Amino acid sequence: MKKPSRLPWLIFLALLVIGLGSGYYFYSHRQPPHQHRAAIQTAVEDEHPASGAQLEEPSTPQEPAKIDESEAETPEPPETEEPSNNATAQPDPCEVLFSRLQNYFEYLDGTEYFQRLSPDVSAYERLKVILKKLIKHPPVPAEEASDPRILLANLHHFFRTLKAQDLRLASEILTNEPDSMEDTFDMLFSWLMLPAPCADPDSIRPSFQVTYTYAAFFVNTVGGRAYLFRRTPSVRVVVQYYALMVIYEADKRKNNTYGVDLLPLLTPLRNEISRFDDLIFQQQYLTNLDRIEYEYRRLR
């Protein structure tokens, strides 16, 4: 039996190739001249990559590349620049806190009791004098049991370091400003804990070591605790709370030089604060004390 001839298939394949080639030739010659040049240029670049200067055609007003270049050189609208300007204009947190401190003392200057007790010296100027005295003559928050002289010095520390007028002013502020007491202590604590170069134009802020010394004095000495017990209960527990926060920071910095053990102090203070429902930041105090106690117990 004879095999079927392949000739018809070969003829059909040849006709198909010729038809496709003719169609391509006819279609490519019907394209606009600049499209035809672009198609040829693309094909050449794909086969033989070359620099753009060698293949670049003279630019015409209708050429897409010319339009793209003009758009790229268009200046950015002012609307898109506003967010970056606003971002750089954010106020410095250090300056904001120092401004709050100054505003508070300006408020004190306008009160009747402050004008009566300090008619010639502003509250801020008096603060600078008081802080310099406290920094120069810190208490000794340890060794009271072994040296009676330290115990006596701590009992009379503020009376020996400050003038009677300074102590009277402090007492008047606590008596006349009970509603802002917590905000005031929070502001002072935040300002005291700022890093060294932050918002202290008059160089009056005590160092962290001095702040830690007074915190240890309030919670670790007879003299410090006796002073707090002469204050109202709400003032006493809030001052104790911030003293523990300073000592906790000293522990984190590995700078608890007087070896104050916070763990036995946390639960009694927490129980006291939980009874003062009129404290604005009560829940914040309790949450922080619970967190610190959990951290200390986990490490032991």
Rank of each mutant, 00 (worst) to 15 (best):
E79Q: 13
T80A: 13
E81P: 03
E81K: 15
E81M: 11
E82Q: 13
E82C: 08
P83N: 01
N85V: 14
A87S: 15
A87L: 15
A87I: 14
T88E: 15
A89H: 06
Q90E: 09
P91M: 04
P93F: 06
C94G: 15
C94W: 07
E95A: 09
V96Q: 12
V96Y: 01
R100E: 04
R100I: 00
R100V: 00
Y104K: 09
Y104G: 04
Y104N: 04
F105K: 07
F105P: 04
E106S: 07
Y107A: 05
Y107N: 03
L108K: 00
L108F: 01
L108I: 05
D109H: 10
D109M: 04
D109T: 03
G110L: 06
T111C: 08
E112A: 12
E112G: 06
F114M: 03
Q115E: 10
Q115V: 05
Q115M: 14
R116K: 15
L117P: 10
L117H: 14
S118N: 13
S118D: 10
P119K: 03
D120H: 03
D120A: 04
V121D: 00
V121S: 00
S122D: 05
S122M: 02
A123F: 11
A123L: 11
A123Y: 09
A123I: 14
Y124F: 09
Y124G: 00
R126H: 12
L127T: 11
L127D: 02
K128S: 14
V129R: 12
I130S: 00
I130K: 02
L131F: 04
L131R: 06
L131I: 08
L131V: 12
K132Q: 03
K132A: 07
K133W: 08
L134I: 13
L134F: 06
L134W: 05
K136G: 04
H137W: 12
P139I: 04
V140I: 15
P141L: 06
P141S: 11
A142L: 06
E143L: 12
E144A: 09
E144N: 09
E144P: 11
A145F: 08
A145N: 13
S146L: 10
D147G: 02
R149E: 15
I150M: 02
L151T: 12
L152M: 15
L152T: 14
A153G: 11
N154K: 02
N154W: 02
N154S: 00
H156M: 08
H157K: 02
